[in-house]
Amino acid sequence: MSPQTVKIKTLKIDGIDLSARGGETILKVAQENGIWIPTLCNLDGLSPVGACRLCIVEIAGSPKVHPACVTEIYEGMEVITQSERLNRYRRMIIELLYSERAHICAVCVSNGHCELQSLAKVLGVTSIRFPHLIENHRVDASHDRFLKDDNRCVLCGRCVRVCHEIEGAHTWDFMGRGITSMMITDLNQPWGESESCTRCGKCVHVCPTGALIEKGVSVAEMAKRRQFLPYLKMMREGENK
């Protein structure tokens, strides 16, 4: 892409006049300008997919809400990132995530380091209004270094993307639809028997909750490191050029 073809667009986010390159997403522009929009499935360094819908925003002239991570800006766009309606929806999303699986924070290795937990706090989720499904999912502890606990999974798909886009192994994938969706390794084999897994551990470190963890940690000890991701992506893109 040559510099000449880049078009600068002007837009407003929360009443602030901004300009940005055409083709950028609302989320990216907001983040570059220090405007906070909650995210969960999105992660800097991975392609956006708009799965969790927490980054929904309002756009003037549209009755719908739009996921900021996959909506491109346009000239004259007016975006609202905080409103009573948006907060209501965002809280509802968090509540639904909590109600789908058994998130027992007290005994979770990610307690205190969990993105779902901190989002619930920031968004002021005090109670879950929906009945809990609490299906007890079997823990996959077959891998010698890592462990998958579907009871803590929010189906954000970060593991799928990091494994496919960065590591290039594509060990992870989704199985099923809707609330029966599950994360699987290879063709739904135990993780420990996966032939494609390179044991790099990137999926563990991008996982926002205690669904993918390292063995050997104890309760509240699983702090994850994600700083590596943008650099890794940058370096790999450099190789391809």
Binding site: Y98, H103, I104, I128, I134
Partner: peptide
């Protein structure tokens, strides 16, 4: 469990 009942 950690979840509150619906009523509560």
């Amino acid at each position: 469990g950690e979840s509150l009942s619906e009523k509560v």
